[in-house]
């Protein structure tokens, strides 16, 4: 793929992303949500005594992560729902280029928004929460949090490309976010892998929240957990690329 054609495809994806309310609003709410969340948690004192400042400040990062996945789904399901996928693929007939442009767009907008949002939320929490509370390790954990949002978004993009229908894809990614920690205990010794396999589990470990015990989110460390989630997202994207290349539109 030539750099020029990729640039054109990326400009196309950005224009499509910013010219529809559903994608812009989902993304904007995702970006804003953690900040008032931090203020609310600090103002109401609704934290466990052993919760860190970082974990408390990022309480609402979990629903924000779900919105990141929804953003990824919308970027592709909007095309299949409206039929513009045929227009897009006549404008950019190399399908790998189309998917690569969508990956770059989703990863870019989600990483930047999440980095700004998580940092602001932490600063707000830090300013408002009591001094005697354990601080947590904000760096490099905040970078990990910011990296996790594009992973969730790309998982949504991959599932949306594979399933082509918005409702099915949304249900699937929300299940991927929630089910592993719910079903983990059923798997006995494999629990640490199963429960740690969801993006939400990786998020709770990165934020060092009091909820991040091995019981709920598996006993993998924060970074291995992030790597695991990123790994299967990459596999899902590979599957999506193959499906997109082989299928009739």
């Amino acid at each position: 793929m030539s750099a020029r054609v990729f640039g054109w495809a990326l400009a196309h994806e950005w224009l499509k992303f910013r010219s529809v309310r559903s994608t812009v609003w989902t993304w904007a709410v995702m970006a804003v949500l953690p900040v008032p969340g931090a203020a609310f948690v600090a103002a109401t004192g609704s934290l466990q005594p052993e919760d860190t400042v970082l974990g408390g400040a990022l309480t609402l990062a979990v629903p924000a992560l779900a919105l990141a996945a929804v953003t990824g789904v919308l970027v592709i399901s909007g095309e299949y729902g409206s039929g513009t996928i045929a227009t897009t693929l006549t404008a950019v007939p190399r399908r790998g280029t189309v998917l690569a442009a969508k990956v770059a767009l989703v990863a870019g907008v989600l990483f930047l928004a999440a980095l700004a949002s998580a940092t602001c939320a932490y600063l707000v929490g830090d300013a408002m929460l009591a001094e005697d509370r354990p601080q947590g390790e904000p760096w490099p954990a905040l970078l990990g949090v910011a990296a996790l949002f594009p992973v969730a978004g790309l998982l949504g993009l991959a599932v949306g490309t594979l399933l082509r229908h918005a409702a099915g894809a949304l249900t699937t990614v929300v299940a991927l976010l929630l089910l592993p920690s719910m079903l983990g205990p059923l798997f006995g010794p494999a629990e640490r892998w199963v429960a740690g396999a969801s993006p939400t589990a990786a998020l709770e470990k990165l934020t060092q929240s009091a909820d991040a015990d091995a019981q709920a989110v598996g006993s993998l460390g924060a970074w291995p957990s992030l790597a695991l989630v990123a790994g299967y997202t990459l596999l899902a994207l590979g599957g999506a690329a193959t499906a997109l290349r082989r299928r009739d539109v």
């Binding site: 224009l15 499509k16 529809v20 559903s22 409206s82 039929g83 513009t84 045929a86 227009t87």
Partner: peptide
């Protein structure tokens, strides 16, 4: 009809 309903003709 294959135009995203939420997008303006200009942006399309």
């Amino acid at each position: 009809r294959a135009v995203h309903g939420g997008r303006s003709a200009y942006h399309h």
